[in-house]
């Protein structure tokens, strides 16, 4: 992908050409905001600002209008920029597209939808975009992501950036966490399926880890099937020069190093004639299960309390 940003006129043209419902949304937000401003001006000129909380009402109305307008404007302009960028660089634009068939953990969580994104047209693709879980009211904020095809299938590996917080949809089972040397553990937590630890460390060689520490401190990374995902808590400015430069700066050497590590990678547990190159145990990480210890402890406590109460 080239780092040349689309020209403002191209973005504007895409904005005008964009989906009808986006323009309607934008106009509604403008009307909402304008009605608030008009209401505020009217009560100010009538000297009725403090009558029955009218002032507070119209201020709240105007602020809500501002919020709505900024939010819809940002989204609409983001979509237009992505379209313009895709148009200018011969990429496929991905606008408001369902993505729950992607194997990445964040996409399989509820109904995932790409808001805006671009993808290279080659077989070994790179895709950059923002997505949201549109049926989950707790996940209204969009996330940024980068998706890249890998030369071969790999076990499921997650490298969770600590500064990203609980970005992934579930906590991993603790036994899948790997302790790593150096500074890496302070910034990232690496998870690999049981019995695939060596494979994960073979793929995440010290070179690759160094690359991560230097260039991707805020990204959570996931390797699943034959794809790599980088997730960012902040949405990415698709078509923005800085974003594309940063992603390229990160992806180019990372892809080269990963390619080198994957060059001879094969899952030793799978015979040559089996269709899937990774054994079932290595294909997906698993979430935590309720520990037997906690269940026993609670049961014992309940029994004790019951005995005590019966005796009393």
């Amino acid at each position: 992908m080239s780092d040349r940003s689309p020209h403002a006129s191209q973005v504007w043209a895409e904005l005008l050409r964009g989906a009808k419902h986006s323009r309607i949304e934008l106009w509604l937000a403008v009307l909402f905001l304008l009605s608030g401003v008009i209401g505020l001006v009217a009560i100010l000129s009538a000297g009725a600002f403090s009558n029955n909380g009218a002032g507070v009402f119209w201020i709240a109305w105007t602020l809500a209008g501002c919020y709505l307008f900024v939010r819809i404007w940002r989204r609409t302009i983001g979509v237009a920029r992505a379209r313009a960028y895709a148009q200018a660089h011969g990429l496929e634009p991905l606008i408001y597209r369902r993505a729950d068939h992607y194997p990445g953990m964040l996409f399989t969580h509820d109904a995932a939808r790409i808001i805006e994104g671009v993808r290279t047209l080659s077989r070994h693709f790179v895709e950059i975009g923002n997505f949201e879980h549109f049926q989950d009211p707790m996940q209204l904020r969009p996330f940024g992501y980068v998706r890249m095809s890998l030369p071969r299938h790999v076990p499921h590996i997650a490298v969770v950036a600590r500064r990203n917080g609980p970005l992934l949809p579930f906590d991993m089972k603790r036994t899948q966490r790997l302790s790593l040397e150096g500074d890496f553990d302070r910034h990232f937590t690496l998870y690999a399926p049981a019995r695939y630890e060596t494979d994960a460390l073979h793929i995440f060689s010290p070179d690759v880890m160094e690359r991560f520490l230097a260039d991707a401190p805020g990204f959570t990374c996931e390797l699943v099937d034959d794809e790599l995902y980088l997730y960012s808590r902040k949405p990415l400015d698709i078509g923005g020069r800085m974003t594309i430069e940063r992603i390229e700066h990160l992806l180019r050497p990372l892809a080269a190093k990963l390619g080198h590590q994957l060059d001879l990678y094969a899952d030793d547990r799978v015979p040559d004639d089996v269709a899937h190159p990774i054994a079932p145990g290595g294909r997906r990480l698993v979430g935590p299960v309720a520990t037997a210890g906690a269940m026993i402890a609670v049961s014992v406590l309940l029994i004790l309390v019951r005995i005590y109460l019966l005796r009393g």
Partner: peptide, 9 residues
Amino acid sequence: DKVVASRRF
């Protein structure tokens, strides 16, 4: 490479 990875594990 595999020996190095298993050693790290």
